[in-house]
């Protein structure tokens, strides 16, 4: 059995480390590099507690070998906040009490941020589907869905403040572009807003 030298860029910092082939990414992150925000749950790719972003996609880090991630960019829950400011997903979990014991929370938040990057305005159903790979034993999920909705609204409001969304489409729903699939999201791109 030969050890391997690998490079991981975690939350923007390059790390070089030597691992056995059987070292799982989650153990490399936690035990070798000290990123203990990522939790180890079921260890069988079911619970999602170990979710991190691997080259911008949410994956279960208990089911990835560290050697497979050689050269990859990893983002863990420690990388969500910027300059001491919570990421909107973190604020959402705080605002909506999206956690009780907190064990699943880092994985939930990493899955949620991945979902919101792909779908910035998900329905509650889409949030539930997006988080189907993450188990929570405390909350009953209701407040987690609320938290992700809250984060989506917050991120959307941020985009408006940055001029990224037409203010005249505001409908008071908290989601300025509307959340129905039939709504025209960007009226200036053609079509009419109903």
């Amino acid at each position: 059995m030969t050890e391997h030298d690998i490079t991981l860029t975690v939350n923007g910092t390059d790390h070089e480390l030597t691992v056995e082939p059987r070292t799982l990414l989650v153990h490399a992150l936690r035990d070798e590099l000290g990123y203990t925000g990522t939790n180890v749950g079921c260890e069988s790719s079911l619970c999602g507690a170990c979710t991190v972003h691997l080259d911008d996609d949410a994956v279960k880090s208990c089911t990835v070998l560290a050697v497979q991630a050689d050269g990859a960019t990893i983002e863990t829950v420690e990388g969500l906040a910027e300059d001491g400011e919570f990421h909107p997903v973190q604020s959402g979990f705080q605002e909506e009490h999206g956690l009780q014991c907190g064990y699943c929370t880092p994985g939930m938040m990493m899955a949620a941020t991945d979902l919101l990057e792909e779908n910035p305005d998900p329905s509650r159903e889409e949030i539930r589907e997006g988080l189907e790979g993450n188990l929570c034993r405390c909350t009953g999920y209701q407040n987690i869905v609320n938290a992700v909705e809250n984060a989506a609204d917050e991120m959307h409001a941020g985009a408006v403040a940055d001029g990224g969304c037409p203010a005249d489409a505001a409908d008071g729903s908290g989601s300025c572009c509307g959340s129905d699939a039939g709504d025209v999201r960007w009226p200036e791109d053609g079509g009419e807003s109903e």
Binding site: S45, T51, A58, K60, A111, L115, E129, L131, E132, G133
Partner: peptide, 9 residues
Amino acid sequence: VGDRQVRNR
């Protein structure tokens, strides 16, 4: 198949 994370991998 699986879930979001599984489909990403």
